[in-house]
Amino acid sequence: MLYFRATDPFPLESADHTKLHEFYTRLAAGRLATTRCGACGRLAWPPRGFCGECGSDRFDWTDLSGLGTIHAFTVQEAGLPAGFDGPRVFAIVKIDGLRVFSILVDAEPSSIAVGQPVRLAPLRVADDPSGSPRWLPAFRPA
């Protein structure tokens, strides 16, 4: 099938395409990482290549714990975009003091509650057009 960037819902994750490729490399190895500003030390979520606080573009990678709790969630049952199935649990996960947006996998929607512990569960999605695997940082009940 022809590949059109405009209908590919996933980011291009490799070093050819993004300054933040290290995030995805670590994710593929089961680690949740983010950036810390090289000048003012501010920890960011999501990772970023420019610090909006001090204006520096130097950053270092640091691993987060991978274990968090549900801060807020909703279950979408209908009206999902092409290529995504419901019911789909969208959640804001609190992890090391940061708020991370994600989905919950392997969760029974009726049993989810605010405050519930969850663990990183890297989700493999469609390969990029040159065949490299792609991953998203999903979570599952801990």
């Binding site: 819902p9 999501p46 979408q76 999902l80 947006f101």
Partner: peptide, 19 residues
Amino acid sequence: EWEAAFGLTAPPCFALAAQ
């Protein structure tokens, strides 16, 4: 990169506010 890749559109965002 950080939201729509998961299939996010507007309804779940506003659902969080409603919850």
